[in-house]
Computed example of a mutant assay.
Amino acid sequence: MLAVAAAQLGYRTHIYAPETGPANDVSGGYTRGGYYDAGELARFARGVDVVTYEFENIAAGPIEALATFVPVHPSPRSLAVAQHRAEEKEFVEALGGRAAPWRRVESRETLDEAIAAIGCPAILKTATLGYDGKGQVRLASPADADAAWEAIAGAPAVLEGFVTFAHEFSILLARGADGSIASYPPPLNEHRDGILSRSTVPAPAEIAVQWTEAAALAGRVAEALEHVGVLTLEFFATADGPVFNEMAPRVHNSGHWTIEGAVTSQFENHIRAIAGLPLGDTGLTGRGVVMENLIGDDVERWAELLGEGDAHLHLYGKRDARPGRKMGHVTRVMR
């Protein structure tokens, strides 16, 4: 989707990855190489004008190496903070944000200490490499500690306490190299089995009244990181205001609705930002919009969805429709 947005602005994209994927079908070039292959990374960097990344589960080292040859946006600093749960919580809290009660967990003993401090129920999450519900274990009581520690294979983690919330929502913004910021209306996010199922805009009133505070925090995060590109912060809407959940230094699944639902999509604004262009209008194209993810076998509904007059279908070209795998999405704009 980034490559398509770039092409519409007249740019050619070149993909670097260890294996082929859907982006190869719509890009001008592809280099198959390992993330730690210094020689291949250097050759790739010399052939492009700017580098960006579309997920955070890669080490910061290769991104830092690329930055010695070519501009990289977002910066390696944004990646380093966002890919570690403890680091991102500390970073956001230092800027005035509130997170759910949490503690670092580095050993089986510190897990017991964290449980004693936070209580149960709680969630043990790996500090890195967790997304869409992966790397997470719920603890109903302290008796679950051994099984939870074994489930994450003793990896560095954080223990998070539960918060009472009405809804989940996200703030998506684009920040240009000149410091300009364009923020999208916050979508209501609904999850199924830990995976985003549906995003709806406009969000309910409980979210709308917390939008200003959450968006201001997201702006402070973007500025502190000197972030260039799209940045996403996820929140819980609680009776006491927005509670920060996690961040992503990239375009986000909860912003896929912007392709048809916003004047300028998150993908186009990301390309605009990293290419030094003015940011585009983030207003809605209709009264509202709903984006539904097609997860696993949901993709088999493609023919039915194409028969709907108001459905905009996006299939990602992934080969295997495994359970829990996002295969595409459908967007409906209310005029």
Rank of each mutant, 00 (worst) to 15 (best):
G39S: 11
D37S: 11
P18E: 08
S27A: 15
R32C: 14
N24V: 10
G34N: 00
D37R: 07
E40Y: 04
G47A: 15
P22L: 07
R46L: 06
E19D: 08
G21M: 08
E40L: 14
P22E: 01
A23G: 06
G21H: 07
G29C: 10
Y30H: 13
Y30T: 14
G34H: 02
P22Q: 08
A42Y: 05
R43T: 05
G47N: 14
A45P: 02
G33W: 10
A38S: 15
G34W: 02
A42L: 04
A45E: 00
Y35F: 11
L41R: 05
Y36S: 11
A45H: 03
Y35P: 02
G28K: 03
A23I: 04
P22T: 03
V26N: 00
A42I: 09
G33F: 10
A45G: 03
A23Y: 06
Y30L: 11
G33Q: 13
E19M: 01
A23M: 04
R46E: 12
G39P: 02
T31F: 01
F44W: 09
D37M: 04
Y30S: 12
A45V: 06
A38Y: 11
T20P: 07
G21R: 09
S27R: 00
G39R: 11
R43N: 09
P22G: 04
S27N: 07
E19Y: 07
A23V: 02
G34Y: 03
R43K: 13
L41F: 02
R43Y: 01
S27T: 07
Y35I: 04
D37P: 09
G33A: 15
V26L: 05
E40N: 12
R32I: 13
D37H: 06
R46N: 10
Y35D: 08
P18S: 03
G47P: 01
F44T: 02
D37F: 08
R43A: 13
T31R: 07
G47K: 12
T31A: 10
Y35G: 00
F44G: 01
P22W: 01
D37N: 12
G34L: 06
F44E: 04
E40H: 11
T20G: 15
G47Y: 00
D25E: 15
A42C: 07
A23F: 01
P18L: 02
Y30K: 03
T31E: 04
G33E: 12
G47D: 14
D37K: 09
G39E: 14
N24E: 12
N24T: 12
T20N: 02
V26E: 03
E40W: 05
D25L: 15
P18W: 00
D25C: 08
N24Q: 13
T31H: 05
D25Q: 14
F44R: 00
G33N: 13
Y36K: 10
E19S: 07
G28V: 03
E40K: 14
G28A: 15
L41V: 06
G28I: 08
T31I: 07
Y30I: 05
A38H: 14
G33D: 12
V26D: 02
G29H: 13
P18T: 05
S27Q: 06
P22D: 06
E19C: 00
Y30P: 03
S27Y: 05
R46A: 10
G39N: 13
G29N: 11
A42Q: 11
A38T: 15
R43G: 01
G39W: 09
N24Y: 02
D25Y: 07
N24I: 09
L41Q: 06
T20V: 10
D25W: 05
L41P: 01
E40C: 15
F44Y: 15
R32A: 12
V26I: 14
G34M: 07
